[in-house]
Nucleic acid binder design. Structure first.
Lengths: 194, 194
DNA sequence: TAATTTAACTAACAATTGTTAGTTTACGAT
DNA sequence: ATCGTAAACTAACAATTGTTAGTTAAATTA
């Protein structure tokens, strides 16, 4: 087994292009050109353009699912669980921002009904787990009484689109990102919260 | 002038389809079918598919720009300015979620360099205005000392993707959305901020 | 060395794409 | 009644799309 086999290279290159223009706007000739080969040569390694998308999206979605289930089954406080989820999103974003962009923007181009259903189930379950964490936190007094949807999607929206802006500024170290993100999401930005 | 002329109808239908599948994945035949006419008939009203995108994206972007400039020139506190921006995003999202989806996801498919540059300038200026508001707020003690990028994009990410989730739950009234969104974004979710 | 595998190539396909040309139909104003 | 316009239509186009077939060159294994 080579350090990175050819198929993995294709997937990484494709993910980068998908991030920039979206799945539908990227042609297999674009992907081939980015690898300095001809389009037909790609098919020695992949079955279809669609297969690339499936591998990118499902792999990352499963990663989120796995960790979320661990978190949910742990006995940490609600706030600690959310802190763990924040760090999970930062982890994956820093490691694979291109795949994350695909997950966010191109999942609806999964053509096989089974793939789409599988993905949507993972996403729904993920949000439902998050919802349960928030509700428990509200009940035991850790979290403010706000509409759970607003809490869930305020945090998730920020985390899901982190890949769009985290690397724009060099002044933002990984440590600062992790700490300030946690603080801003959990404690807000005003000086006198009460 | 009719209540809504035909061109406006096309743009609204197209925006809805673009929201669901993205600009590149929507064909002019898709748009025509959604209006119960043939693709060629569209060209009695529009110059090109691209023109539809330009009208959708630029119109909304200019709306954000106009209000942001008013806000920036006002003499409100930093927090009050941010509160106004939060309400602006909610306003536009409730009124035109489809166009907002295009703005977020399809701006990179603006084909004319002039259009793309114009849009990017508006977006950069918008973020820069937000950055200035935050920096002033930090200086005069209204806002916590956090990395400004984290503050700006935490809030903007949430507001920009509001169209994705605001209508999922019927349990979320407009009033609750506006109040809780403001509270969550500005004051966080924890009970003991200090 | 011979055999096999890997990974590239050229050429071509059928389908789909945005768009144009030219025509027809319905309707309000003169 | 006639004119003009708005808005639909059919038919067709050239370009681009994902993909396949068949071939070739280089590297690895026997």
């Amino acid at each position: 087994m080579k350090p990175t086999d050819r198929k993995t290279e294709i997937i990484n290159v494709a993910a980068r292009l998908f991030k920039e223009k979206g799945y539908s706007a990227v042609t297999v000739r674009d992907i081939a050109q980015a690898m300095n080969i001809k389009a037909a040569s790609l098919y020695n390694h992949i079955a279809s353009k669609q297969e690339i998308l499936v591998l990118i999206v499902i792999t990352i979605a499963e990663e989120f699912t796995t960790v979320m289930e661990e978190v949910q089954q742990s006995e940490a406080s609600a706030i600690a669980k959310i802190e763990r989820i924040i760090q999970l999103h930062i982890d994956i974003t820093l490691r694979n921002p291109d795949a994350l962009a695909c997950l966010n923007n191109d999942w609806m181009h999964l053509e096989q009904e089974a793939d789409l259903k599988y993905f949507l189930k993972m996403r729904t379950d993920y949000e439902e787990n998050f919802r349960q964490i928030v509700k428990v936190g509200v009940q035991n007094g850790e979290i403010q009484h706000r509409n759970p949807e607003v809490i869930i999607f305020s945090i998730l929206s920020t985390l899901r689109t982190l890949y769009l802006w985290y690397n724009k500024t060099k002044s933002l170290s990984e440590t600062t990102l992790r700490n300030d993100m946690r603080n801003v999401l959990l404690e807000g930005i005003t000086v006198n919260a009460r």
